[in-house]
Simulated assay, not measured.
Amino acid sequence: MSGPSRRSLARALETLDDFADPSVALEQYLTPPEIAAHVCHQARLTGDLDGWVVDLGTGTGMFAIAASLSGAERVIGVDVDPNALAVAQSNAARLDAAEESGFLEWVRADATQPPLSGPVDDATVTVFSNPPFGAQRGNRHADRAFLETARSIADVSYTIHNEGSQSFVESFAADEGGDVTHAFRAEFPIEQRFEFHTEGERTLEAEVFRIEWA
């Protein structure tokens, strides 16, 4: 499967619009273009874009659009927020992502309870997700729910987590018959967007995991 270079993909993703009115409760932060480009480039080289691609909690559409531009033919972006999906649709239209992909659809649904069953037509399913890190009160372990959904529908998943999550992710995967095949650190820049942010911009250390599910 051919596709753009990681650098050119990142440059294209840098043009995507951010959330117009980000939600604190949903922990809506823009997925860094560099991370999305790196992950989708890796997925293309590994053959993980050959089946269905599902972006859980797609937000502004970063992973879904990146997968489409990378050559995935069947992509679904799922998010509970209709305003975020409107931004995602606009972003995809501006980059002609739907033209690059044979199928790009946006679904309004709770990403932890998506109206999906997989695999579809016996095809493989790859999940991408930048779930909430669980930083807000009542959101602790929010990323676990996304992993549970990935486990239920995916053959392979790529998820972003807060620094220090490796033991949790590996333990969860092992308990569910999965195997963490790749893990790497990534910088996650966060611009000031909520009242409790006291810095103009800060960078979190994040961890990205590729899991093969049995």
Results as ranks from 00 to 15, higher is better:
R144D: 02
D81R: 14
S117T: 15
D96K: 12
V78W: 02
A93M: 11
D79P: 03
T112F: 00
A86V: 12
R94V: 04
A97H: 07
R144P: 00
N83D: 15
W106G: 07
G134K: 08
V80C: 11
T124W: 09
A92D: 05
H141D: 15
P82L: 11
E99Y: 09
A145Y: 05
T124S: 15
P115G: 09
D96T: 04
P82E: 14
T124C: 09
D110M: 03
R140L: 09
A93Q: 12
A142C: 06
A111K: 01
S90I: 04
P132C: 07
R137V: 13
N139Q: 15
A111E: 01
R137Y: 04
A93S: 14
V107G: 11
P115D: 10
A123R: 15
V127W: 04
N139R: 14
A142K: 00
L95H: 04
G134C: 10
D110I: 01
D96A: 13
R137F: 07
L85D: 07
A97Y: 04
P115A: 08
D110F: 02
F128T: 02
P114R: 03
P114Q: 08
P82M: 10
L95W: 05
E100S: 13
D81M: 10
A135R: 14
V87D: 05
A86C: 06
N83Q: 14
A88C: 08
I76P: 00
V125K: 02
A145L: 11
S101L: 08
